[in-house]
């Protein structure tokens, strides 16, 4: 049954008396794009004379289709893997980029003036303290060694005087 759409298509394509027996290339191109004419052409071929296809043709086609679907599945798997790798690479790149932006933000946005004053003061206090303590320690060590020396001198002098009295 011819529907309205088909009728419109029919008139638009100008399906007028295509001679299927002596067909031209332009008409063939039309048949390749028009469903109605293709069906008519198929009917003509079926009525006129059909040629028997080679006996091995079906097996060859089925073999190639199975090979094709196998290759297609492998390609699909490879494509999925590649897309997953690309996604991982993208996430990694985003992380690096965010980290860089954060570092730059901290560098430029955090106020520098107060910190410059504070940090040297803390540093200076700490260093001064350390210096003082070290000096005190060294002074104490020197005093102790001086005392030791003085005591040893005094003992030596007493010994000498005792020896002289005995003689």
């Amino acid at each position: 049954m011819v529907t309205e759409e088909k009728q419109i298509g029919f008139t638009a394509c100008n399906h007028k008396n295509i001679d299927f027996k002596n067909i031209a290339l332009e008409e063939l191109e039309h048949i390749a794009s028009c469903e109605i004419c293709a069906a008519q052409y198929a009917g003509f071929i079926e009525k006129q004379a059909m040629i028997k296809a080679p006996h091995y043709l079906k097996d060859n086609i089925l073999k190639k289709s199975r090979a094709f679907s196998g290759v297609w599945n492998i390609n699909k798997h490879i494509r999925l893997q590649m897309s997953w790798k690309r996604l991982q690479m993208f996430c990694y790149g985003m992380k690096i980029g965010l980290a860089m932006c954060g570092a730059l933000a901290i560098l430029f946005l955090v106020p520098v003036g107060d910190s410059q004053q504070k940090e040297p003061a803390v540093g200076v206090n700490f260093i001064d303290k350390m210096n003082r303590e070290l000096r005190e320690f060294s002074d104490n060590v020197l005093e102790y060694t001086d005392l030791l020396v003085l005591n040893s001198d005094a003992n030596n002098k007493e010994d000498i005087s005792h020896d002289k009295e005995k003689e």
């Binding site: 071929i45 059909m50 028997k52 296809a53 080679p54 043709l57 079906k58 086609i61």
Partner: peptide, 10 residues
């Protein structure tokens, strides 16, 4: 293939 093999070949 079973239905239209011969037709296509023709």
């Amino acid at each position: 293939i079973n239905a239209y093999g011969n037709l296509v070949f023709s």
